[in-house]
Design a protein around this nucleic acid. Structure first.
Length: 276
DNA sequence: TCTGGGGTCCTAGGACCC
DNA sequence: TCTGGGGTCCTAGGACCC
């Protein structure tokens, strides 16, 4: 039987996850103030484990934290959210109907403002009401992938595993101007600086990339992207700059610009291909 | 939250190839 | 010459998360 623990500090703290690693070495960090732990193999009662973690965090940081323990990650996170900032909630399979189903659908990870509004139009407010919908209906409304996800999540089903290491898929920088601008020179100057930032990160982490994307948000908050894929992976600033300005040139800069950003994706870790 | 920054994943259409 | 299907890559946009 799987047993997961999710904990969250009341305020973002750099040291949060690091500190917890002393208690349980294998954790999945989610941002800087929360983490998942797989406590399935710890032969102690859930509340005992939770209290011990809370005690140690209190001693180490003088902060309270909220903890949720449940059969999977999805539920443990919802549980820790139920009682903030100093909660301890334990949820079992049997509690799903009583404790999860009355909650707003928005509490499910992956359900944001748009989906929440759409569900309301369908007459669905709670997770339980979502769980009452047949799979076919959900797939029809939301597509295969998301429809299936909602079907399972609303039933408290989540088989995702602990993720302790992942490679970035993209590296980006963006900046919002203090005032909306239409000065092309200034936009270009900012783009160059952002590219320098991205290339700096790439070199630091030893990545090269193939696809350069430039993002522009106008003063009406409409956001557009233009992308260019190169033939070869690169971390060369001039090459990336050429691609980025090619993208920039494909925008109609008729409205004032609020934000400009650059992203490089299609990443490859340098040295991975010419080993052996 | 009249809206910051850095990410992920999904969808959909078009190009191109076999 | 025309038709057709499938696979893959590229591009653009959108929703969502912390």
């Amino acid at each position: 039987m799987m047993r997961w623990l999710h904990w969250r500090l009341p305020k973002p703290r750099r040291k949060g996850p690091l500190f917890l690693k002393e208690v349980i070495p294998i954790v999945e960090d989610v941002g800087i103030d929360e983490a998942f732990l797989d406590i399935s193999s710890i032969g102690r009662a859930s509340d005992e484990i939770a209290r011990e973690i809370k005690r140690r965090i209190k001693e180490g940081t003088d902060l309270n934290c909220s903890i949720g323990i449940a059969p999977n990650k999805l539920l443990s996170k919802i549980a820790s959210d139920l009682e903030k900032p100093d909660g301890l909630i334990i949820i079992t399979e049997e509690d799903i109907e009583k404790r999860i189903w009355p909650l707003p659908a928005r509490k499910l990870r992956g359900v944001g403002p748009k989906t929440e509004a759409y569900l309301k139009e369908m007459g669905v407010k709670t997770i339980g009401e979502l769980a009452a919908l047949p799979l076919e209906r959900l797939v029809e409304e939301f597509g295969q992938s998301y429809g299936n996800y909602l079907y399972e999540a609303s039933r408290g089903i989540d088989e995702s595993q602990l993720v302790t290491h992942w490679e970035p898929k993209s590296i980006s920088r963006e900046t919002t101007f203090q005032r909306d601008i239409d000065n092309w020179q200034l936009i270009a100057k900012n783009l160059v600086e952002l590219i320098q930032g991205v290339v700096g990160s790439m070199k630091e982490e030893n990545y090269r990339g193939r696809t350069v994307t430039v993002k522009v948000r106008f003063n009406d908050f409409k956001t557009y992207t233009r992308a260019k894929s190169l033939d070869e992976f690169t971390d060369s600033e001039p090459e990336i700059r050429r691609a980025a300005f090619d993208c920039l040139g494909r925008f109609e800069l008729k409205k004032k610009v609020r934000l400009i950003g650059v992203r490089i994706s299609n990443l490859e870790k340098e040295g991975n291909e010419d080993r052996d």
